[in-house]
Design a protein around this nucleic acid. Sequence first.
DNA 1: CGTTTATATGAATAGATGTTCATTTGTTAG
DNA 2: CTAACAAATGAACATCTATTCATATAAACG
Lengths: 103, 103
Amino acid sequence: MSPLAADQAVQLAEMFRIMGDVSRLRIILSCLDEELAVGDIAARLDLSPSLVSHHLRLLRAARILRADRRGKHVFYAAADDHIRCVIEDMVAHVREPAAEDEQ
Amino acid sequence: MSPLAADQAVQLAEMFRIMGDVSRLRIILSCLDEELAVGDIAARLDLSPSLVSHHLRLLRAARILRADRRGKHVFYAAADDHIRCVIEDMVAHVREPAAEDEQ
DNA sequence: CGTTTATATGAATAGATGTTCATTTGTTAG
DNA sequence: CTAACAAATGAACATCTATTCATATAAACG
């Protein structure tokens, strides 16, 4: 539909870039279906809370995750459904069997 | 549905990483709806043929684009529809207005 | 108040990555 | 065959980025 202007490409690439890191993608996946505190994410993924916090800042800025402070804890969850769709489509892609003409 | 095993996360992140570069994403966008030769891509995007070729190798390996040699030219096009969906969803995400509680 | 727990931030660094340039391979034409 | 064009490849480099460590802010509790 829309022509996908050049500046949109920059914005899009930025989004993909943020999701293109294994640690960050794992964080996203962890928060897709449940709200999790920073410490819980760190424990589950075996990452330092500091590192998780650094990544969460990017994910928040990209509006991939949203933060919700409750007392000492800050809970993170998926911001909207688009990211879920993006991931589902990408899963479908990687699961696609390699074309037979590939060499 | 599926549990998204840890190794799948690595594969997924790799895909996003490849799409997370502006030059590469522009190449993908150029080849979404039409077949293009390497030189044409380079000319359209104002990139060196060498650089385009480097990127195309990654895009081929990730099965995002497929190559088709015809004489001296090698034409590239989107390998399947999943990437189209991924991009559409991501466009929808970046177009989503920022939540009002954001600060 | 001070202490403890949870999260965020800043600087420093080691490793990854995009780009350029030079060269090579592949294909067609004369 | 040689020449010309198209694409691919390899090395070198400058830049970026993920991670670590130390420190700071925030909140609850004694």
